[in-house]
């Protein structure tokens, strides 16, 4: 499933997103795309060129865009509506709640620049709470694809889901982790590396980080399992219980606030089923700030060394 070495992809992930959506839309007339004056950022120009009638730029009006998408969904269309992760979630939370999820309309909300990847746009544009904001909405599906292979594999599944879905999407070049042909299922975690001492449950840009941390831990004689929880909701409880049972400790790794995010989702499940020492790597309830991504990863404790240190703490806590 995994590549032998992990390198940045030569293209931006948004190109994969748009290319795949164009492909899907060619085969399915129900697929439409919406944007809120960020078409140039989301890379959706090729979609507009291919299907000008089926691309709706709503202007800088995200709340309206989400509602328009819901109206289209009620007419049988499958809308993909994009804005930056901040504006696609916290700004339009009530619209996603009532017009989409509560109305059981299968709108696909796409929020780009997850967490520290907002880098030079700074704290105002840095979604460290997007998943947390939406996670309290019943029945919504939250997905954070890792790289091109996974995104391409998940998009048709996302389109086919009869549910409101939020796709937390990296715009920039992802680190390629998965081999061509790897297959995924929404709601099912993917085991990337076996291990018996601790499980690193990771998502998004933290997948490559966790894999690097596992190598570091191996040198310290800690055998870390790495599991990609790309679906944050519904979280794969079965996989979590298995990992907790077999490795006895969990470290969650997220490019997100640890309040309400992946760590919370895993902890909520495990505390009821298989409580084990659990450490949460992620932004420790701080606002984001401006700066290069590398600086921000370091500042907020999202490095492989941070994950390895957390794993050691978790292992030390085992009874």
């Amino acid at each position: 499933m995994l590549k032998k070495t992990f390198e940045k992809e030569p293209h931006m992930l948004r190109e994969t997103f748009c290319g795949t959506l164009v492909e899907m839309a060619g085969a399915d007339a129900r697929i439409v795309a919406l944007d809120a004056d960020l078409m140039s950022s989301s890379g959706m120009k090729p979609f507009k060129k291919a299907f000008p009638e089926r691309f709706i730029n709503c202007g800088v009006a995200e709340a309206n865009m989400v509602g328009v998408a819901a109206g289209l969904a009620s007419m049988g269309f499958i809308p993909f509506a994009h804005s930056f992760g901040t504006f696609a979630t916290r700004r339009v939370c009530d619209q996603v709640f009532m017009s989409c999820a509560y109305a059981r309309l299968p709108v696909k909300i796409v929020g780009t620049d997850p967490g520290v990847c907002a880098a030079y746009n700074g704290g105002t544009h840095m979604p460290l709470e997007d998943m947390a904001v939406l996670r309290a909405i019943p029945e919504i599906v939250l997905v954070e694809p890792t790289d091109t292979v996974q995104l391409k594999n998940l998009m048709p599944q996302i389109a086919a889901l009869d549910a409101t879905v939020y796709i937390r999407l990296l715009r920039k070049n992802a680190v390629a982790v998965f081999e061509e042909g790897a297959a995924f299922e929404i709601g099912k975690a993917a085991t990337l590396r076996e291990g018996k001492d601790v499980t690193l449950v990771c998502s998004g840009i933290m997948v490559a980080v966790a894999l690097e941390a596992a190598d570091m831990l191996a040198k310290a004689d800690i055998d870390a399992r790495v599991v990609n929880m790309f679906t944050w909701k519904p979280v794969d409880g079965e996989a979590l219980e298995k990992c907790a049972g077999e490795t006895g400790a969990i470290v969650t790794c997220e490019n997100h606030n640890v309040v309400g995010g992946l760590g919370s989702a895993c902890a909520e499940h495990l505390m009821k089923t298989r409580p084990v020492p659990l450490e949460t790597v992620g932004v420790q309830d701080h606002f984001g700030e401006v700066g290069p991504e590398d600086y921000l990863r370091g500042k907020f404790g999202l490095s492989a060394a941070d994950v390895a240190a957390a794993a050691k703490r978790a292992v030390a806590r085992k009874g």
Binding site: A63, G67, A70, L72, D94, Y102
Partner: peptide, 19 residues
């Protein structure tokens, strides 16, 4: 259409009309 949170029906109606 599901409504109740004011203002949202305007957008959903626009979406329906586009659809």
């Amino acid at each position: 259409m599901t409504t109740g949170s004011l203002g949202q029906g305007v957008s959903t109606a626009v979406g329906i009309a586009v659809g």
